[in-house]
């Protein structure tokens, strides 16, 4: 055991308490402030009201932005699922020249700062594609998001494939099943949870992405982070942002719950 004096234990406990306060008090302030009747997040709160909740739910621009975020997230997720799974199979099942490079290629879009990725795409869209008459518009945003989401699916599926034995698939092929039948009936059920986890992470990553969106969103189109960002950039920030932020904090319990369920399901499978 690590022998620590009473004083050291108390000091460590105090540091942990400071960390928890630092992490959670600001989030709670956001929640409490969504009920603040005032226009600025002043403290202590003078008057509580549901005024901003009403305003937020009636705000069409906000819900259009949410809709856009969902569409872009789903689009990016589907592309990332396809490309990430293909790449995971290629890198897990084969040894070939340049394997490390391909691996780096997949990680690169998330390893580089979002502003670099965003500026690179917007440069291509505006200075190369547009002059030759190709307007990607909305699709350009989905393309950019999908690019940095691939790694999420790849990582999950790759890690699972490493633990799977190929003998089941060989048996299936030997019994006369086609490649597709084998994939559908034998291979896929084995990495389904990793596939779902990857999809969830890819969607969440896209749903939260701001910087790449700033540079690739077509004019007049807001995603949710873009809408929040525009509200926050104004000097008198509209308090509806606190409302949507509160909803997002509450929503964040879902992925934590799902991931715990997935880990448990995985443990049961083994």
């Amino acid at each position: 055991m690590l022998r620590l004096t009473r004083g050291a234990r108390v000091a460590l406990g105090a540091i942990v308490a400071v960390v928890l306060v630092f992490m959670y008090v600001p989030l709670m302030l956001v929640i409490v402030n969504s009920f603040n009747a005032a226009r600025i997040p002043s403290w202590p709160i003078q008057e509580f009201s549901l005024r901003w909740w009403g305003a937020a739910f009636a705000n069409e621009a906000l819900w259009t932005a949410v809709g856009n975020s969902v569409i872009v997230g789903l689009g990016a997720m589907v592309i990332a699922l396809l490309l990430g799974t293909l790449a995971a199979f290629a890198l897990q099942r084969f040894d070939f020249f340049g394997k490390q490079t391909v691996n780096l290629l997949i990680v690169l879009p998330i390893a580089l700062p979002g502003v670099v990725t965003g500026v690179a795409f917007s440069n291509t869209y505006n200075n190369i594609l547009e002059p030759i008459g190709i307007q990607l518009g909305y699709l350009g945003m989905i393309v950019a998001h999908a690019t940095f989401c691939i790694v999420m699916v790849f990582n999950n599926v790759f890690a699972r494939l490493r633990r799977m034995s190929p003998s089941m698939q060989e048996a299936s092929m030997d019994l006369g099943a086609s490649l597709w039948q084998t994939f559908r009936l034998v291979t896929f059920p084995q990495f389904r949870t990793a596939f779902v986890a990857g999809a969830l992470l890819a969607f969440a990553l896209s749903f939260d992405e701001l910087v790449v969106t700033i540079f690739t969103a077509p004019a007049g189109v807001d995603t949710l982070p873009l809408w929040i960002f525009n509200q926050m950039s104004r000097p008198n920030e509209a308090t509806q942002v606190n409302v949507i932020a509160t909803l997002l904090i509450l929503l964040s319990f879902i992925p934590v719950y799902v991931s715990q369920r997935l880990t448990r399901a995985e443990e049961d499978e083994r």
Binding site: V25, L27, L29, V30, P225, N242, L248
Partner: peptide, 14 residues
């Protein structure tokens, strides 16, 4: 999971 801008907003409010 709480969101990038949500956390920046939290710091702003604080």
């Amino acid at each position: 999971w709480a969101g990038y801008l949500v956390k920046i907003l939290a710091m702003r409010v604080t």
